[in-house]
Nucleic acid binder design. Structure first.
Lengths: 350, 350
DNA sequence: TCCGATCGTCGAAGCGTTTCGACTAACCGG
DNA sequence: CCGGTTAGTCGAAACGCTTCGACGATCGGA
């Protein structure tokens, strides 16, 4: 491992000159610069990251706080990670993964105080998330993938759940569906203050009541079994349902299975829309699912880019909501039996 | 940010004494130790990771080289990552994610020479993988998740594909199936030297010919569409098939869909076994898939633990194969029409 | 022609640790 | 009571980089 010293000696300049060539902090004559670069090439020199980090007090590492929750890691979350890693890599930063959740505040305090990371991105943000406070105390720049309840002075990137739900409901109502059930995450997850579950719930209620329809929400465990149970419950509470809107990426396959068992054709008898879903997952089902496709890796990328801008000083707080895009596939179609009650309450032209 | 200096001053000792308390390298009297610890607590002291790294020439960071391939990231690969992150975290190490594949050797050389990582784990290992050579040149300890063709002197953890395939074939043959099709990854993936695709292919051929059966393998693009195409092709080449063995986690749903379209009941007409699959994914299908469940996060954990042992000096090369466990669910049953040709060729008792 | 800027370079002082050599005091066996 | 360990502590020198202040040389303007 060649050091800067070796380069300086070989190029017959001082160490500081080598450093200036590297950082561009001060002007260097073309002749000298050439000599130095040549020496570097010859010695196969690479600056030592630790030494540079110590001197600059910047590690060029950003952290991704990725709690490994009960919910597990769906395709959507995985896309955040890969997007974040790519963005960091593009900017010459490294991305360290830490399985630190809203509970492990001591671990976080340690990580933050060690000054190993220049900034962090938080995943799986709870409505009230203690990690934000800890990071602010320790002065570590942060950006949320998700949102807390109070976001003043914070940077975040999140899915625009409100618009996403609204669009999904619009799509179904536009097809003539009136009896729509929303299958959310589990009751425990909702109680824990998981933002997406909360926000979509509220948006669903708003969208449905806006149409004068009854908003029926059913929680489901994050598994196929949970989905089946949820659909069973839905059929009991609303035997006349013609459409299901599902937030829960794991439960959706259970919902489809239970519909199959009950001989309700998709989309003939029941239309299904999957929310915040990656195309790859939507294509797995048969028929392929009409879905609100999540921004996926873009979310992770944007979050890290915002964080890096914050570190540079360029760009302060960045708050952005990305909508999911409706992609109509095979799991939705016009409602089966347009009852007479259907007319009247200001449906959209769709 | 309190430094060691501050602690030393407050505790009225020298800086080195504080360091000895922290590292335990030299004996310290109980009284002094207590004073120092108290000072640390009072100042909320955390050692600076960069400084420590510079002095010890160890960053306490390990890298996970995780190429973001065309193949994307299935549940199985995600499990590797989470397992690795957890293992690193448990040992007080950090895990940095680098999207460095077998192609980006320059990026890797840079990462390795910067001495930012103490060691690395390689994912998505190709049969001939240039990354191994680069890391060995730069003297960075490494462990493979997967295997190259020549593994002498290397540490690796991999799935025991041979046994996994054998068990799956045994299961099907034991149920009376004779006409079994193996759906592998895509032809391009195989050509690129992706180990799992190659090894399972060879093992399948060996297992089938061992039973005196014809080994029919069909490659499939890693998507539902690819799975459907593959099954169509299989039905053409072997209209009498009664069982499908699928390696391709993405294609499997396409296979099921195409079977449904062709009105071949699962498992009544065709039994399906999914290889190297997580239970969560197996449960998504209806009926739930009989599968060889992958060791998942255990693989990532074991790999990182082996790497850390290598860094400590305790433990040299670690080579380990983990089998997938057969979990019988609803997608397999005895073969439908036991033709007369079925008897004779030494079937297992099962 | 002289002055102040600017350019190009150097030496040295950090950055916050670890670790080596040295020193003192206490302790042990003879 | 003495020489040799050992326990406990200190100061200073690394580790490999950045950055500050200084200095000679060059240059443009009055």
């Amino acid at each position: 491992m060649a050091t800067m010293h070796d380069v300086a000696r070989l190029a017959r300049v001082s160490v500081s000159t080598v450093s200036y060539v590297l950082t561009g902090t001060r002007p260097i004559s073309d002749a000298t610069r050439a000599r130095v670069l040549e020496a570097m090439a010859e010695l196969d020199y690479q600056p030592n990251a630790m030494a540079r980090g110590l001197a600059t007090r910047r590690s060029r590492i950003v952290g991704l706080l990725m709690p490994m929750s009960e919910r597990g890691f769906g395709a959507t979350e995985t896309a955040f990670v890969t997007g974040a890693a790519a963005a960091a890599s593009d900017a010459g930063y490294h991305l360290v993964l830490s399985p630190i959740g809203a509970g492990d505040l001591d671990d976080l305090r340690r990580l933050a105080s060690q000054r190993m990371v220049d900034g962090v991105a938080l995943m799986e943000v709870q409505i009230e998330d203690g990690r934000v406070g800890v990071l602010q105390e320790t002065g570590v720049p942060l950006v949320l993938i998700g949102r807390t309840s109070d976001t003043t002075g914070l940077s975040y990137v999140d899915i625009d759940f409100d618009q996403t739900v609204r669009e999904a409901v619009d799509h179904l109502v536009g097809l003539g569906h009136r009896r729509i059930v929303y299958v959310n995450h589990s009751a425990a997850t909702i109680a824990a203050g998981y933002g997406p579950a909360l926000r979509t719930r509220d948006s669903f209620v708003a969208a449905m009541t806006g149409y004068g329809l009854e908003p029926l929400m059913i929680p489901a465990e994050d598994s196929a079994a949970g989905g089946r149970a949820a659909l069973a419950q839905a059929m009991t509470q609303a035997p006349d349902l013609t459409a299901v809107l599902a937030m829960n990426e794991n439960a959706i396959f259970g919902i489809l299975a239970e519909l199959a068992v009950r001989r309700r054709a998709v989309p003939g008898d029941v239309s299904v829309v999957s929310m915040v879903t990656s195309p790859a997952v939507a294509e797995l089902a048969y028929p392929a699912l009409t879905a609100m496709t999540s921004p996926g890796s873009a979310l992770g990328r944007i979050a890290v880019e915002a964080l890096l801008r914050q570190l540079d000083g360029t760009g302060a707080h960045h708050q952005q909501l990305l909508p999911c895009a409706l992609e109509v596939r095979g799991s939705t179609c016009p409602a089966a039996r347009p009852d007479n009650e259907l007319t009247g309450t200001g449906l959209p032209g769709g």
